[in-house]
């Protein structure tokens, strides 16, 4: 709870916003994006940590970006093969994980200075915090915006199950599904988050 409140990449640090805003129209897309970032973050952290002693600081950024880019490419090839519809709906935002500030930020700030084990732990801590935040945003936006809840639809190509609820609520605020709604949802959630955190910290 404490690390979720303190180091949450979206709500506390406001990093990786691009995907948090763009692909949170459905719950499924949101958590799949979170998991994708976790995947890239994990492997890039491992590799960066492994080669950290052989890279001088001056070329750190390009090298790290190339490492991250490689894993993003691997990830997109995997998704394209196994979950083509998800790959389509994530679209360009999947490639944009390459320049996601969270991944590069952790590589620079943590993995390049710490051992592999610690880097893995860090990747999980940050990645899971990110995924939870994404799930939260996706939940709010889909439930209130489109009045549906998609747990499994695009990924059914892999799992074979579909789990979609429709007309969950008696009303819907379609605005939340729009780009404007994305900003407003994150704004309000961040405010609530700040509120909880200040209460938590004062205790």
């Amino acid at each position: 709870m404490k690390s979720f409140l303190k180091d949450n990449p979206i709500f506390a640090l406001s990093l990786g916003l691009c995907s948090a805003l763009a692909v949170t129209t459905t719950f499924e897309k949101a958590y799949m994006m979170g998991l994708s970032v976790l995947f890239v973050l994990l492997f890039s952290n491992i590799f960066v940590s492994l080669i950290r002693k052989h890279v001088s600081t001056s070329i750190q950024i390009p090298v790290f970006i190339l490492i991250i880019g490689t894993f993003v490419t691997i990830l997109s090839l995997l998704l394209e093969r196994f979950m083509p519809s998800l790959y389509d709906s994530l679209g360009v935002y999947l490639s944009l994980i390459t320049v996601n500030c969270i991944v590069l930020g952790r590589a620079l700030a943590f993995a390049s200075k710490n051992s592999v084990g610690k880097s893995i732990a860090d990747a999980f801590k940050i990645g899971i915090g990110y995924t939870i935040a994404m799930m939260l945003i996706g939940l709010v936006r889909e439930l209130f915006g489109s009045n549906t809840l998609t747990f499994m639809n695009d990924i059914s190509a892999l799992t074979g199950y579909r789990l979609v609820f429709k007309n969950v609520l008696p009303f819907s605020l379609s605005i939340l599904a729009t780009p404007a709604g994305a900003f407003i949802t994150i704004g309000i959630l961040t405010a609530i988050f700040n509120f909880i955190r200040s209460k938590y910290e004062s205790n």
Binding site: S14, A182, F183, I184, I186, G187, I188, T190, A191
Partner: peptide
């Protein structure tokens, strides 16, 4: 950030 998000929204 929250007010910035809302303004952007």
């Amino acid at each position: 950030y929250p007010i910035a998000f809302i303004t952007a929204g």
